[in-house]
Design a protein around this nucleic acid. Structure first.
Lengths: 137, 137
DNA sequence: TGCCACTTGCAAATAGCTTGCAGTACTTCA
DNA sequence: TGAAGTACTGCAAGCTATTTGCAAGTGGCA
């Protein structure tokens, strides 16, 4: 908490109640779109504006406290930076978001660097497909 | 060309000039957003409406002549179905879209199926990262 | 405690895409 | 070849998600 405030202040930024609420919501939700963060925050503080959510998510990301990934159709989803890196397995059928450890892709990442010099962050985007449940059907 | 028309007619669809232009543009452009397709089509036929582009891309995708992938921020990009079968390496720095063969990810795909029963189509979404050129800087 | 720049809430603007509707023009069938 | 039926098109309005401008509010250092 205190180190978070310092992190912000070192950059001339402030620790406001809204900012804390946004961070807490992201941590609690795991993966969340800005809209979901807003919904969560408003349960305790109904007055908070959506644009405040957007601006704070951006600010917190600049500071390195949260990260975003592209999961849904267009919308970014945010998660806490200190949450371990993992892949996002997004089911196109049911929309569920599963996790897989980084190691699953280690070989793949190595291939891309070796063959193309392309450095990938596989935690940053969704792996689309069909989850085990849905492919049974 | 003729088999394309049949493909459409079998489904009660029509081969219109606009539809042909859209298909041709997608083939020429390789990867293109709806907006880029429109721009390309309008060079020869300025009157074509954006919504026509969208509707035709959707129609052509239903018929199986084009496919889309999620590359940019939210926007889908389209490519001809018969040139599919490669990964899209999208550079977050310069925005360039590179290709890599499916085999690069074969191992990765196998991991996900084996460990999680998750069936992935790696051609359908972007692999974000930094391309060789940009990571030199 | 006071000041100042950072923040917030609000409303309006924007981007990207979709939808409703009326007129147009492919296709099929005589 | 012509007529009829229906898919298709262009236009305008609508939507969703996100951004921006601005005036009022407020942390935090001095």
């Amino acid at each position: 908490m205190i180190e978070r405030a310092n992190e912000l202040r070192q950059r001339g930024l402030r620790l406001t109640p809204q900012r804390e609420l946004v961070l807490r919501a992201v941590r609690e939700l795991g993966h969340a779109t800005p809209e979901e963060v807003a919904e969560s925050v408003r349960k305790s503080h109904p007055g908070i504006n959506l644009s405040t959510i957007y601006r704070n998510l951006e600010t917190l990301e600049n500071v390195g406290l949260v990260k975003h990934a592209h999961l849904g159709h267009g919308g970014a989803t945010y998660h806490a930076a200190d949450e371990a890196g993992h892949l996002h397995l997004v089911c196109e059928d049911c929309g569920s978001v599963g996790d897989a450890p980084l190691e699953s892709a280690a070989n793949f990442v190595a291939n891309l660097i070796g063959d193309y010099g392309f450095e990938t962050d596989v935690t940053h985007f969704a792996i689309y497909g069909t989850c085990a449940n849905c492919s049974k059907k």
